[in-house]
């Protein structure tokens, strides 16, 4: 199984991502909580690309490929924006009391928690983020 989605660098495109994940989940008969978690991790990843790889740039392409192989879901997110490695971004400290909790850093925290692996590479002028998740 392979499915592809092309988004542009605008936050309104997140709606298309949700539909894509819904279709994928239906096709693969994924449980609701897995669908929810995949949507969440990918939304955070796409939001990062829009904010940091394509700051103030619209209509730039973000390519998402989803594959299923040996009971493992594999997602690749690719863009040709500024170099941005989300795996190096500061992660929210979730143990702090409310007054000290920062507003940022939750997105990358969620991506790491919800997926089994999150790997970044910069290849031929592209940011490539690969995330995997076992289906069991």
């Amino acid at each position: 199984m392979e499915k592809k989605l092309i988004l542009t660098s605008e936050t309104s495109e997140i709606a298309k991502l949700a539909v894509f994940i819904e279709d994928l989940s239906e096709e693969l008969n994924l449980p609701k909580d897995l669908m929810f978690n995949i949507n969440l991790a990918l939304e955070e990843a796409v939001s990062n690309v829009i904010l940091y790889a394509y700051p103030d740039k619209i209509e730039k392409e973000i390519l998402l490929t989803a594959r299923l192989k040996d009971n493992m879901l594999w997602f690749e997110l690719k863009d040709y924006g500024q170099e941005f490695d989300p795996t190096q971004a500061q992660i929210a400290d979730i143990t702090l009391p409310a007054e000290e909790r920062e507003i940022g850093g939750l997105g990358i925290f969620l991506m790491r928690q919800l997926m089994d692996t999150v790997e970044y590479s910069r290849t031929d002028g592209a940011n490539i983020l690969i995330m995997t998740k076992h289906m069991n």
């Binding site: 949507n39 969440l40 939304e43 409310a98 507003i103 939750l106 997105g107």
Partner: peptide
């Protein structure tokens, strides 16, 4: 039905502001 980190930020802000 669904809450992303942007929504969590609103919840945290609400908690801080109300407190």
């Amino acid at each position: 039905e669904y809450l992303s980190s942007s929504g969590l930020r609103v919840i945290l802000t609400a908690h801080k502001q109300v407190s």
